[in-house]
Amino acid sequence: MALDDDMALLGRQPLLSLMERDALRLLAFAAESRILRAGDVVFRAGEPSDGAILVVSGAIAITTQEDGQPAEEIVGPGAMIGELALFTSLPRQVTAIAREPTQVMRLPRSVMRRVLGESPDSAEAIMAAIGDRLRGFVGELKAVEHALGAIDRK
């Protein structure tokens, strides 16, 4: 893929779309393209994370179980897996396996840190968006807490 195509694909991601064009260009330039065969494991649940995966073409099965059960989710072109791993290290929560020949773009956390370090406006925009998400999650948790409290009072 050409650099402009990679930038366009990255720019369709909600968080990455907040980045300045030059920052997005640096991220696209440093991203690692990989071709996977059907059955190739992208990563396994419990492994340490080091970045995100963006599906360019093909399909990836996402599962929390490794017991032969069908995947909980199948993601295709344009899906980003492990977005939070762009910003922090945490164990992978799921196992991701290519279901068919698949092209992915690997976005290492080290690259994202370098790009955001060189683009403070992009870093600020992403930080604000993540803050908004966290406030939304807290609101949802409070609603669940309230609903559970109402059930306990019955």
Score class of each variant (00 low, 15 high):
77 P>Y: 10
75 V>N: 03
66 E>C: 14
54 L>F: 07
59 A>S: 11
82 G>A: 02
56 V>Y: 04
72 E>W: 10
66 E>M: 15
69 Q>A: 15
68 G>A: 14
81 I>T: 09
82 G>W: 08
81 I>V: 11
64 T>D: 13
72 E>S: 13
79 A>G: 10
56 V>D: 05
74 I>C: 07
53 I>Q: 02
70 P>S: 01
52 A>N: 03
68 G>S: 15
61 A>N: 11
74 I>N: 01
59 A>T: 09
53 I>F: 00
54 L>W: 03
51 G>T: 13
78 G>A: 03
58 G>Y: 02
55 V>P: 01
61 A>E: 09
63 T>G: 09
55 V>W: 02
56 V>M: 09
59 A>E: 08
83 E>S: 05
59 A>N: 08
52 A>I: 00
83 E>F: 01
73 E>W: 09
68 G>E: 13
60 I>H: 02
58 G>H: 06
50 D>K: 12
51 G>K: 08
84 L>D: 03
79 A>V: 07
51 G>V: 13
50 D>S: 15
81 I>W: 03
56 V>P: 04
75 V>G: 03
83 E>N: 03
50 D>C: 14
83 E>A: 01
59 A>V: 06
52 A>E: 02
76 G>Q: 07
69 Q>G: 15
67 D>R: 08
62 I>G: 00
52 A>P: 04
61 A>D: 11
